[in-house]
Design a protein around this nucleic acid. Sequence first.
DNA 1: CCCCTAATTGCACTGGGTGCACAAATTGCC
DNA 2: GGCAATTTGTGCACCCAGTGCAATTAGGGG
Lengths: 223, 223
Amino acid sequence: MDSTTFLDGTPPDHPHGGSAEEKTSRRELNKQATRAAIIEAAVNLLSENGLGNFTAEDLADAVGISRRTFFNYFPSPEAALAATVQNFLDGAIEEFRQRPADETILDSAIAAVMALVEPGSLSRMARMCLLTENQPQVQRWQLMAWDDATSKLSAAAVERLGTKADPFFVRTMVGAIIGAGKAAMEYWLEHEAPRSGQVTDAHSMVLRNLITQALQHLRNGFA
Amino acid sequence: MDSTTFLDGTPPDHPHGGSAEEKTSRRELNKQATRAAIIEAAVNLLSENGLGNFTAEDLADAVGISRRTFFNYFPSPEAALAATVQNFLDGAIEEFRQRPADETILDSAIAAVMALVEPGSLSRMARMCLLTENQPQVQRWQLMAWDDATSKLSAAAVERLGTKADPFFVRTMVGAIIGAGKAAMEYWLEHEAPRSGQVTDAHSMVLRNLITQALQHLRNGFA
DNA sequence: CCCCTAATTGCACTGGGTGCACAAATTGCC
DNA sequence: GGCAATTTGTGCACCCAGTGCAATTAGGGG
């Protein structure tokens, strides 16, 4: 999970989109822990106080760091919230990367989503999205995460196909894939998501199937 | 052109997504004029000073209104910039609405884009996007505009198809359409756009063709 | 233990964004 | 035209997001 994007303040370590190389030094571990703690505290504050009812200072206090340090990790409280979505999408793209190279891009995308049964990140993100429905402040950052995912998936696809494929073709296909996936998730949020906020495995399964279905429609040209 | 979305502060006049009904009262005219003046001044300040090098107060001064009044129109200077994109997409959706009802959604989308030869909004937006490349502050708002367009197009499609069509199917298709269109535009920005910032009719034509091509790929299921 | 680098923190400052109360413009009505 | 009602613009005060800078502390390597 390379979490170095423009969602946080830190510049990318690796210019290429390579996958996880984790320094296990003490410094790095502390940073990872702090980052995770911030994300968790942000979601907690959100569900307790509601959006806009807590400040960056509240968040920093909850984690036990200074306000200034928080801004070393995230450019805004909303960005910390959107990081959950970011992490989920990064996971999906990681799955995509591990698909066999001779598979169709679309098939790989479908398979990647299917592989995302791991209830952790999916249900975390689903809960997150439920909490931030109709909260444009956060949604702006979540849209950035989706946009970022488009870039990364594009890079992964190009990486796999090499120079054989038309870049324009790949680019638009990836745009359509992400667009359809995002639409499926929003549909789930509106129609299938638990109003309680408690996302069970059954709910996650429905979501997974919806996304898969959306990509299959896409493969059929929405005929 | 109903310009009442969450990009500006004003609540929607019409709950349904109906097309332009313009009150020609003096009040309404003044508001429209002020709004247009703000958008224009924002683009001017952007091209003169560069992004982040002008404040909301500068912008208000340029228009001849108070800072407070500016915030009655837009929630941020960036939002004023993104309004250009918003206007363009609204125009495209308006074209879509005027397509015959028996046409395929995808065909209508293609036709709508083809109808957008009107160099005004397209080249304005293209110039805008060129100026805001790699400017995440503005891009976040532009992403909102794209997301808003997805909602509107979805509504228009449902409106046309009635209850005959599967809402999920329509939703994901629209998501894919917008996603592919957005990707095509980004491709254009990176590869075909004039570095000078001066967008000629030829450039617009290329852009239009790229978007059309993207939608045709989509119709073919990216085979 | 001691240097060196990286991370944290405090401080001060700019400017976005908003609630509020009041002035100015517009409208409808007579 | 005059007058009341409503809508829009504005000034003011305030909060807090976000940032640069310099001092401080923590980790890593010898």
